[in-house]
Simulated scan of single mutants.
Amino acid sequence: MNINLQTLKENNPKIKFIEYDDSTKLINPWNDNSVSFSFKKGQKLTLIKNIVFPEQLVAILDNSKNRLEFIYGPIKNDSTLKTRKFNFAYNGIVFNCFFKEASSSLKLLAKSFKENLPESETDYRQLRLHRSLLIDDYYKNLFEDVFIASFYVKGDFKKIDYDLIGLCKSLNFYMSYFDRNTPKILILAKSRNEESYKNPCFNELFDTFPKKINATKIDSTLLDTFMVANQTENVRLKFIFYFQVLEYASYYYLDKRIQSKILKTLNDPEIFDKPEYFSKSLIEEMKDHFSQRDDSLKLEKTITEIISIDDIKNEIEANKEFFSKDLEFEGGLKIKRILSGDNAI
């Protein structure tokens, strides 16, 4: 194997190589299986031997130059971005930030880029567009008044323990503070093991999709939150949005005794003749409910009264092995398994 590719492998243990008679295919840069590179045998590759592919960034890190290069795209020659440069102090370390033409290393990678799998949410790390801009005459003519730019951050990353994500989040915040329309650094979610859990659909309980669905009226706020949670790729944010559904439902929770009392009051034929009496009666019934500060109890009652085991049985059954083990988080929080004994794996 090419000695430069061996060095690249040492810097990026997750990448893989497939050797052909006339070329070498590099798979899984950035831990992204949709992206690959094809290099000809004997091709000079010294430009990329010191490159690191940060998994959550659309960028390459050149360790030999202490330079993080974000893959951006075409910029018009008269754009103010072309000359933008500034120093950014993060955790006491100063980094030089600037826009400049894409590096020779990035151009080499872009020209060698090959789609390995169907397009994912990473959008091939912008490499498909860069490849077209570099080797396709149609794109060259279409973008003749631009230059292919990258955004660079240069400094001693070792002194911040290579906290690239923290650095990027801070950069996004401050750049947008001074320029609302500034290009933002794209931070991707970490790849997760798709086989660690199964995501069964309700229609798996039946032979076919139902011919008729009888919809019930659902609160619009709950529907909006459900939609956002479902479309969010980030697992942490997905959990937060789904939990907001429970919070919203529990906030408006009324136990059955109060519900019964309200319905009885509203259906009383004398309610229009004695409005003050009935309003006081409702206030007395409701005051204890709204003075109650134990939100956890309201949440528990919301779940136990509204949700039945049949609503979640399919998900539990599909992930039986997961629910048969204790779950421990960083920091020591431990959640005991919900399946045990004969129900355990």
Score class of each variant (00 low, 15 high):
Q259T: 02
K40C: 05
D326I: 05
L129E: 09
Y177M: 15
K320I: 08
V52T: 12
L5R: 05
F226N: 13
F17L: 02
L171I: 03
I258S: 04
L299N: 01
P54Q: 09
Q292V: 04
F99R: 02
L237T: 14
T232C: 05
T232Y: 06
N2I: 08
R128I: 10
K169N: 15
I345W: 02
F323N: 09
A249D: 01
T24D: 11
K198V: 12
E69P: 06
I160M: 01
G73A: 11
I75H: 05
Y124H: 06
E315L: 14
S132R: 02
I160A: 03
N141A: 04
I148R: 09
I262K: 03
K301I: 06
A318Y: 14
L26E: 11
K65H: 03
L297W: 14
S120P: 00
L68H: 05
F143G: 00
L339V: 00
Y242D: 06
S104T: 08
S150G: 07
R192S: 14
F157R: 03
H130N: 07
L254M: 03
S260V: 07
P183E: 07
T304Y: 06
F241W: 10
G341L: 05
V35G: 11
F243H: 11
N50R: 08
N96R: 14
K190L: 14
S112H: 07
F99G: 05
A249M: 03
K211Q: 12
D207Q: 14
S103I: 00
K25L: 04
I213K: 11
I307K: 00
D310F: 10
S279I: 13
L127K: 09
K320Q: 15
Y139N: 04
D22I: 01
L61M: 04
A102W: 01
D311Y: 07
N141E: 01
K313N: 15
L47S: 06
E330L: 13
Y139Q: 01
N4H: 15
N66H: 06
E233R: 13
N96V: 00
V58H: 00
D137Q: 05
L57D: 10
Y20S: 07
R131I: 11
L246V: 06
F88V: 06
E330V: 14
E233C: 06
Y177I: 09
K301N: 15
C97Y: 05
K85W: 08
N96Q: 14
S120G: 07
C97V: 10
